[in-house]
Design a binder for these strands. Structure first.
Lengths: 152, 152
DNA sequence: TCCCGTAAGGATATAACATAACAGCTGCTG
DNA sequence: CAGCAGCTGTTATGTTATATCCTTACGGGA
């Protein structure tokens, strides 16, 4: 029985990140690794303060916001994580390697986020922007609604 | 000489909102009217607290956040204003009447926001979502980059 | 007239999200 | 070993948004 969700494997995802880091000489420190685990094990995107809480519990001492925001910045910069602007939340990027400009499907009911790529859409967006004389360097496409599972 | 920007006429926009309100029996109170004016006269989208500041100056007394957030909610509910999620800012919706699901072009340099409609894009988004079994009821498409004027 | 319901706004407090600024540590490299 | 870069800790603060309760204004029906 297959779920409607992408069924990301947390372990596999983390291994991929590890291998990309190794390949690019990026430092995957213990702190970063822990945040990675927290993110990957969550079924839904997490807010920064949810990460702070979990991390504080893990470490047994309070972790201050800047620590987590810096870690998130590192992941965002390298495309391992994306930010969901309409929710102020962060989620593992399933398509490592590509610039992360997918379409986000955000379920109202279960809170999950799914990311899909669509070259046709990207081209159309680019063309639409170009027609307005606009040169985009970042795009956000977020759809809020009901996912397959929750609609059923 | 025509600007690259939509050159929205603040007065005209406000009149349109007035007429829609009249037509739908919506109450355009003095407070709402003042917020409308503040929004329409700004060249770039405003954050809620910028509105609070301006409104407080206009009224000669401090205005509390809930007052402005309620007013914004009213405008958002009726599609007079849209929220720019990636900036936490609010701007007049130039296409009254349509559900406001346009593409937002956000200039990094001058801070302005432009809204364009694209039926083709909407259809493609809808189709893409449907293929994933997703039923969207709200969409956000934001492109960040350089507008025509600033690129020149 | 009196009462009541509803919509709008005021006031206080607090929650939630994010960053500035500086200090310390570690490991590399000249 | 000196000096620098990268990472983390710490304190404080800035920014955005909501919960809660109270008051006012207005319209409709007993």
């Amino acid at each position: 029985m297959k779920s409607g969700h992408a069924e990301r494997d947390p372990v596999r995802w983390q291994e991929q990140v590890e291998s990309v880091c190794a390949g690019q000489g990026l430092h995957l420190t213990p702190l970063r690794r822990r945040v990675l685990t927290i993110l990957s094990e969550s079924s839904a995107p997490l807010g920064a303060y949810a990460i702070i809480d979990q991390l504080s519990r893990l470490e047994g001492k309070p972790i201050a916001p800047p620590t987590v925001y810096r870690t998130l910045d590192f992941f965002l910069d390298h495309g391992f994580v994306y930010k969901i602007e309409s929710r102020n939340a962060y989620a593992p990027c399933e398509h490592l390697g590509h610039a992360h400009h997918g379409v986000l499907l955000l379920c109202d009911k279960c809170g999950r986020s799914d990311e899909i790529e669509d070259m046709g859409l990207d081209r159309l967006l680019q063309a639409t922007a170009a027609r307005a004389g606009f040169a985009p360097h970042r795009q956000m496409v977020e759809l809020v609604g009901l996912c397959r599972d929750c609609a059923a």
